[in-house]
Computed example of a mutant assay.
Amino acid sequence: MSFKSLTLSAALSTVATLALAGAASAHMIIEDAYARASNKMAGAAFMEIINHSDVDDRLVGVRSDVAKRVQLHTHSEDENGVMKMMHVEEGFAISAGETHQLKRGGDHVMFMGLTRELKDGDTVNVTLVFESAGEVTVEIPVDMARQPKTGHGSHEGHADHDGHSDHGDGESN
Rank of each mutant, 00 (worst) to 15 (best):
S2H: 04
S2K: 03
F3C: 14
F3K: 15
K4D: 14
T7Y: 13
T7L: 15
L8T: 14
S9K: 13
S9Q: 12
L12Q: 11
L12I: 14
S13K: 07
T14W: 09
V15M: 12
A16I: 09
A16C: 05
T17H: 12
T17D: 11
L18P: 01
A19R: 08
L20S: 10
L20W: 09
L20E: 07
A23I: 05
A24Q: 15
A24S: 14
S25W: 00
A26V: 11
A26P: 05
M28E: 05
D32T: 11
Y34A: 13
A35I: 11
R36M: 12
K40G: 08
K40W: 05
K40D: 12
M41E: 10
M41D: 12
G43I: 09
A44Y: 03
A44T: 05
F46W: 11
E48D: 15
N51L: 02
N51I: 01
H52S: 15
V55F: 07
D57A: 09
R58Y: 06
G61K: 10
G61D: 11
V62T: 06
R69A: 04
V70I: 05
Q71S: 15
H75D: 07
S76W: 12
S76N: 06
E77K: 09
E77P: 02
D78H: 04
E79R: 07
N80I: 06
V82D: 13
M85H: 07
M86H: 15
M86W: 13
V88A: 07
E90L: 07
E90K: 13
G91Q: 08
I94G: 00
S95Q: 10
A96F: 10
A96W: 08
G97N: 07
G97M: 10
T99L: 06
T99R: 11
H100I: 13
H100L: 13
Q101W: 14
Q101Y: 14
L102C: 10
R104I: 14
D107H: 13
D107F: 09
M110W: 07
F111C: 02
G113R: 08
L114W: 11
T115R: 14
T115V: 06
L118Q: 01
L118F: 02
K119V: 07
G121T: 04
D122R: 00
D122F: 01
T123C: 00
T123H: 01
V126F: 00
L128D: 01
V129A: 01
F130Q: 02
A133Q: 06
A133S: 14
A133I: 03
G134T: 04
V136P: 00
V138L: 00
V138G: 00
E139Y: 00
I140P: 00
P141S: 02
D143L: 08
M144W: 04
A145Q: 11
A145T: 10
A145F: 05
R146A: 15
P148A: 09
K149Y: 07
T150D: 12
G151V: 06
G151D: 03
H155F: 11
G157V: 11
H158Q: 10
H158K: 06
G163M: 07
H164C: 09
H164V: 08
H164W: 05
D166C: 04
S172Y: 08
S172P: 00
